[in-house]
Design a protein around this nucleic acid. Structure first.
Length: 456
DNA sequence: GTTGAGCGTT
């Protein structure tokens, strides 16, 4: 994370050493953007270490060469490791934590978490500052529910990811003399165990693996930072996916998924109609639910997923989604929450298809299935031309899926409920081509998030 | 006493 460049870990500090002291001391080397002394959250006792962030990362070189004594204790200054580095390095046995600026952060979001807000800041001031980076669609400052006191953090949403990137060029921003820190916002509901409200029904079926975060560092989970690059296919919860029986199992040859067969009824097994929100609706790429290993999603290119599902499609209003031909980008126009149930359904699925042999028929993504009406089974979707959506009705989640041959990927990705997020971040959007190319399967089980259309 | 904390409605 480049945002941690310029950050020093200071170990072995005295319990007497304050943040001000740290700042003053290291201020001799250069501008200090932030100096913190970590304390035990419950006892408030200093933990004996802290962090100092310099505006200019180059300063570190100087600092690292010197010995430092603060409040009578010799302290140790090292480059701070980002969390992911800690993990990675530890596991790899890499003792030389050279900074690696790659990795992490390739998740794109339109929302930024802003920490360190001065209590006096109001939303207008907050907004005005960030408007210089792009069109701000939403501004939130959090307050304590009971005391109504500012909690010191808030969120800024932009209409484009680019704006977010611009903001994230720097970790600290100066709002009228006060420093605030920006980070990508964690996707709300990132994790089923976390109490998100979409937890209600179907979510749980998911996540075969138990769906909790225990095996991952919570933060990592939330940020979806890559830890290493796993190569292989993640064991997608083979068992998980509800009863529909998708067998998502990874094929050992790395190709495609097998599975899934037969899918008949609309939404069957999916937890129901519309929307069962699977997967993480917010995180692009996240797709899968908690149990899924994050690795692979971060680097599709190399991870062997050829074509990822498609972006996603539509937003709400299932029924009109135009016939999606499945082509990426062809996002069905589904807006209009009005009407129907307001659920989304995105179109498509698409079959990943792995084809080990060339015989499969439809390489192409298939189309969608989006909102189809409840009863119609629509099996066989899949023609390259895209199935047609038939609307009306209740908008069942159709989900895409496979092709006639039974292979299929399945996919569908509707992350997020917010309007058009089309174009997901998937790698190659289309499983086109003669099989050769792409394997894999794409798409995470996206989900169509079940969210009410209305909003206020 | 040596690697962090805050994440959503207003």
């Amino acid at each position: 994370m480049d945002s941690d460049q310029g950050k020093l870990f200071i170990g072995g500090i005295s319990w007497e050493t304050s943040e001000e002291k740290l700042r003053d001391y290291f201020g001799q080397y250069g501008d200090v953007l932030q100096a913190v002394v970590m304390k035990d959250k419950t006892t408030g006792r200093p933990r004996g270490f802290g962090f100092v962030v310099f505006a200019d990362p180059a300063v570190l070189d100087m600092v690292l060469q010197d010995k430092h004594t603060i409040d009578g204790r010799m302290v140790e200054a090292k480059r701070a490791l980002s969390r992911e580095e800690q993990q990675t390095n530890a596991r790899a046995g890499n003792l030389n934590p050279a900074r690696n600026t790659s990795g992490g952060g390739n998740i794109r979001t339109k929302k930024i978490f802003v920490g360190g807000l001065p209590p006096t800041l109001n939303e207008d001031g907050f907004r005005q500052y960030f408007e210089t980076f792009g069109f701000v669609t939403d501004v939130v400052i959090m307050y304590d529910q009971s005391t109504q006191r500012p909690r010191g953090f808030g969120f800024i949403s932009f209409d484009t990811e680019d704006a977010v990137d611009r903001v994230l060029q720097r970790t600290f921003h100066d709002l009228n003399g006060k420093q605030v820190e920006v980070k990508r916002a964690l996707p709300k509901e990132a994790n089923p165990g976390g109490g998100g409200r979409s937890m209600g029904g179907s979510y749980q079926n998911y996540g075969a693996s138990g769906g909790n975060t225990s095996s991952y560092d919570g933060r990592m989970e939330r940020y979806m930072q890559p830890q290493g690059t796993g190569g292989g296919f993640p064991p997608y919860g083979s068992s998980g996916y509800s009863t529909a029986g998708y067998g998502y199992g990874p094929a050992t040859n790395g190709v495609g998924y097998g599975g899934y067969s037969g899918y008949t009824g609309a939404g069957a097994g999916y937890g129901g109609p519309a929307g069962a929100a699977y997967g993480n609706p917010n995180v692009p790429n996240a797709g899968y639910v908690s149990g899924a290993p994050r690795n692979s999603w971060n680097s599709q290119g190399s991870s062997g997923y050829g074509a990822m599902g498609y972006g996603n499609a539509a937003s709400w209003g299932a029924q009109n989604a135009g016939a999606g031909s499945g082509g990426p980008g062809s996002v069905p126009a589904g807006q209009s929450p009005g009407g129907a149930s307001g659920y989304g359904n995105q179109g498509y699925g698409y079959g990943g298809y792995g084809g080990n042999d060339g015989s499969y028929g439809n390489p192409a993504g298939y189309g969608a299935v989006g909102g189809r009406s409840g009863g119609t089974p629509n099996s066989n979707v899949g023609g390259p031309g895209g199935a047609e959506l038939q609307g009306s009705g209740g908008g069942y989640m159709g989900s895409g899926y496979g092709d006639a041959n039974g292979n299929s990927g399945y996919g569908n990705a509707a992350w997020r409920s917010e309007q058009s997020q089309a174009s997901g971040n998937y790698g190659a959007p289309q499983a086109n081509g003669p099989h050769g190319g792409q394997v894999g399967y794409g798409g995470g089980y996206g989900s169509s998030q079940a969210r009410k259309a209305q909003q206020q």
